[in-house]
Amino acid sequence: MNLYFNYLLILFKSQMQYRTSFWLLTAGQFLVPFSLFAGLYFLFERFGQIRGWDFFEVALCFAVIHMAFAVSECFARGFDTFSSLVRTGDFDRLLVRPRSTFLQVLGSKFEFTRFGRLFQSIIVLVWALSSLSIEWSVIKVMTLFLMVVSGVFIFTGIFMLAATLCFWTIQGLEVVNIFTDGGREMAQYPLNIYQKWVTRFFTFVIPFGTVNYLPLMYLLGKSEGNELLYMLTPAAGIVFILPCLLVWNLGVRHYRSTGS
């Protein structure tokens, strides 16, 4: 972890060398997502509710998934830009260093400007929570926290899977954005508004349902049956990182140097 924080500090100092650019990009990341939220607002202004979900319930869902995406995009950006390391042969240098390639790639790039998106999501979260009549308890606070953590792990896992493909394809594949940017857009709404096969896929294969749907039903008192199962579902999203790590290690073992 000392090595990881050293990476963090070095890259933060490098980005702060151009402070005006840094703050303008951060402001842009803060303002741009408001267009998405404005679309959400006007949708509910016109139709009132969607499949039994009102505006502030969906706003809570929106805030959680965008917070998770912002944190993951900030701290796992190294996997999102990994194809350049393979293409230029720089990944060979990581292989001869006495630390795991996972840690080195994770610490190779940070996008601190993404905190602008995070701040915007926090504002939406506070507004939604202040407008909902939730009977809070310590367990519910922990569930909300784990929802965000689960989302971070899921997005990071998807970035890792996309990076692993680069061992065979060299270039990154745009189709993976279906599960990153597309997953973020889809998961900002409760999953039960979609067809059943979509809900099942994004619950049992890529478990976005453990972030924005099942535990959300527990928080809002809409769960049916054993509430403990709804409360613990974010753990499934966190566990999602484990098979992603296995696939990553498999890709590293099959990597062939560029020879440059």
Rank of each mutant, 00 (worst) to 15 (best):
F62D: 06
V252F: 01
A63M: 08
E174S: 15
T156K: 07
S131D: 01
V138D: 09
M1K: 12
L40K: 00
R99Q: 13
L103A: 12
F201I: 10
F47C: 00
S137M: 11
C244L: 05
N6M: 09
V141P: 06
L9M: 13
D80L: 11
T143N: 04
F159C: 10
S100T: 15
R97V: 06
S130M: 11
V141Y: 04
I65E: 08
P190L: 02
P33W: 00
R51M: 12
P243W: 02
W53P: 05
W23L: 14
A163Y: 01
A70M: 00
R87D: 14
S223R: 05
L229D: 04
S131F: 01
K13D: 13
I170E: 13
V32M: 10
S150I: 03
V32A: 13
Y7V: 07
I238S: 04
S137E: 08
D90W: 01
D54E: 07
F167T: 15
V149E: 00
W197H: 15
T26D: 04
A70P: 08
T26F: 11
A163G: 10
N6T: 12
L220E: 00
I241M: 14
V124P: 01
I122D: 02
G209Q: 03
V96E: 03
R200M: 13
L165A: 11
Q120I: 01
F34H: 12
K222A: 06
S83A: 13
A68E: 03
Y4L: 11
H66I: 04
S137R: 02
L216H: 02
S14T: 09
L8D: 05
G172P: 12
S131R: 08
E224P: 09
S223Q: 13
L229I: 12
P98Y: 04
M186L: 15
F201P: 15
F91R: 02
Y4H: 08
E227Q: 14
R93M: 13
G209F: 02
V247N: 04
R256W: 00
I238E: 02
A59C: 01
I134K: 01
L250Y: 10
G209V: 00
L129K: 03
L24P: 08
L220M: 08
I65C: 07
L228R: 09
R97P: 00
M1C: 11
S21W: 06
T258R: 10
F56E: 09
F201M: 11
C244G: 08
M186N: 09
F55Y: 05
L85T: 09
T81I: 14
V152Q: 00
L246Q: 13
Y189I: 08
K13P: 06
C61L: 03
R99M: 13
L129I: 13
R93G: 15
Y189R: 11
L219Q: 06
T101I: 14
R114Q: 14
G89F: 07
D80I: 06
F204K: 04
Y18V: 10
F5W: 10
L129E: 06
P215F: 00
V138F: 14
Y4E: 09
I65V: 15
S137K: 05
Y7G: 12
G259Q: 05
L24G: 09
D92T: 05
Y230Q: 02
V148W: 05
Y255L: 03
V175W: 14
L125W: 03
L24K: 11
G209S: 07
